[in-house]
Design a protein around this nucleic acid. Structure first.
Lengths: 336, 336
DNA sequence: AACCGATGTGTTGACGCAAACATGTCTAGA
DNA sequence: TCTAGACATGTTTGCGTCAACACATCGGTT
């Protein structure tokens, strides 16, 4: 900065003003400074700026297993939204999810230079983690009863959509392959499926649990394929649905003629499954964008030292459940 | 820090020493300081530390489209490896790939507090981007002729493995669905496929190009399914292979009885495709780990002001091509 | 002529930390 | 006893930036 100042024949402060787009700088001076900046390839030092201003313009994201489809898409959306708003994204992976590891990750982020944190841990265990106050936090894809704002897909609505679709096709009831019981989202989908069946007076068959992977879907699918009563299956995500489809094929049960299958997520590949999968689309883009906006609002609010009433208002906004949509493809039909 | 120092009855410097794990602190003093830290919830300020030391203990990762399978897995591995080594990962997404956007992303990272950058852009256009010097850079999944170390899967070996497997099953030749021509990896796979065919004296059929998505694989697959000469297809990634499989099914061509298909990547779902996909496995974990280690070595080298000879040595290490493995499943068989 | 506010620019200091150096204390060996 | 060296700890200083304030200039009032 000093070099730029010298080359432009001004003080460091003026360089700072130009760098920050302040208006009270003469047009000619500004041009001279910008010229000098370009010439010297000057880049403001983020660390010094952060030290001075107390703002890092960076948010931390705690994630478990980037490899699952939803997490990845959400992270992508978060990164894009944050970048558009001038914030960078710091990744903090957690290798296994328990109270200790999550708390550790949070603490490590506290040391790192971030203005706020997005928690992308869908596990119930999160409910037991006491997060230190002082750092704005937004929770994604998890329960709605935390001390922090929660952004999530409307899991209940999505699962109802899927179940009702199958019932309306004429199936007597709907079987369910659920996600792991440790997952909040899996629980919500399972409960909503069950509630929908009860509302319609249908039998509630035994649930099968998977772990979100397509291999676990195959295992569940084999069990269902062996039961001739099964004519309709709601699978808690597309990856497991892929495994279910394969299990049905290997057991000679035609989809959708013998068995109908509905997934959840609408991953890009679902349209190319065999047969193309009817599924519930969730908008990961919306989730990501809303998370960032909510977090930034929190950060901003703290910035302005809100009265306690305002904090209260922020924390208790109704959680914004992002609606889903049923995407009809070729894996569902009425019973024979 | 001052508060901690006062509470522990020591100087700020001693607190600093404890915080940084220096050894020259009395065990009792250390305990007292750590106690005070816990009591006050002290977290060192990363910005100040970075400003003072010039080290950020953070690496930047430039990515395009987190949504593709390989990128995601690699990022996961990078984040895990970096965290294990005490570095955090800053994400810098690029919305579209051209000289300008990549240079911009790099420049933005320069402002941000990072010690080095991993470039995860597989496009040829990268070859034309002049990266400013001074910041260590490692390029992943791209060409081997940059000014920076390159870490990549052995694309050539992988494509040969796939092609030879099909030829050895007795197919007269092998068709190919390539990735986009803008991609370095796609080019290498296509060239290696072609070379393998030539080496064996086989016809080289017209290439079909996709864009890595399963939908584009379906489009290519429809064209191939219509041609009765086609008995063996090497598809440049698993996602497109999924689309190819569906196209073959819809056109009544049995896999593997009528047509054999080999993919590339071995994504988790490939084992649950219908039929389970024979594919080339690349180790994204290795790629990620090696990228981080190479970058950290570069960072460390600059730290110690190496003589020019040493820089030279680093930059011209033979690129470490990570080997692949052919995973045999049910989508390949000899011709009828 | 004296005064005003608006505008553009320079000077000073502090953010939190750690490197460099200074000081004090203890131990071992001459 | 004296000294060298190892070790623990304290003091000073500055990293790059920007807020706060000081100052200088100018057009327009009284």
């Amino acid at each position: 900065m000093a070099d730029v100042a010298q080359l432009a024949g001004v003080s460091g402060q003026t360089v700072s003003r130009v760098a920050n787009g302040r208006q009270n700088v003469d047009a000619l001076t500004r041009a001279r400074v910008q010229d000098a900046m370009r010439q010297l390839g000057y880049r403001p030092n983020g660390a010094a700026r952060a030290l001075r201003s107390g703002e890092f313009r960076s948010i931390g994201v705690i994630v478990f297993e980037l490899s699952t489809f939803g997490t990845t898409r959400t992270l992508d959306a978060i990164a894009t939204a944050a970048t558009a708003r001038g914030y960078s994204v710091k990744l903090m992976p957690v290798l296994s999810v328990n109270r200790q590891t999550v708390a550790d990750a949070f603490s490590r982020l506290g040391e790192q230079a971030v203005d706020g944190v997005i928690m992308m841990i869908e596990a119930h265990v999160l409910e037991e983690v006491r997060l230190p106050v002082g750092l704005p936090v937004v929770v994604v894809h998890a329960g709605a009863h935390y001390d922090h704002p929660v952004i999530d897909t409307d899991q209940t609505q999505g699962a109802r959509l899927a179940t009702e679709h199958l019932l309306e096709l004429g199936h007597r009831t709907v079987w369910h392959v659920a996600g792991p019981s440790s997952s909040f989202a899996a629980d919500q989908r399972r409960r909503s499926w069950e509630q929908t069946l009860r509302d319609r007076g249908c039998d509630v068959p035994q649930v099968l649990f998977g772990d979100w992977t397509s291999a676990s879907g195959y295992d569940a699918g084999r069990r269902l394929a062996a039961d001739p009563d099964v004519t309709a299956i709601f699978v808690a995500n597309d990856q497991m649905a892929l495994g279910v489809l394969r299990a049905l094929h290997t057991h000679g049960r035609a989809v959708p003629d013998d068995v109908s299958v509905v997934g959840f997520d609408d991953m890009e590949e679902a349209a190319q499954f065999w047969p193309p999968l009817t599924t519930v689309r969730q908008s990961f883009t919306d989730i990501g964008r809303r998370s960032v906006d909510t977090l930034l609002a929190e950060i901003h609010a703290i910035d302005h030292q809100p009265p306690l009433a305002e904090i209260h208002a922020i924390d208790h906004q109704p959680p914004l459940a992002v609606p889903t949509a049923l995407i009809l493809r070729a894996s569902t039909a009425g019973p024979r």
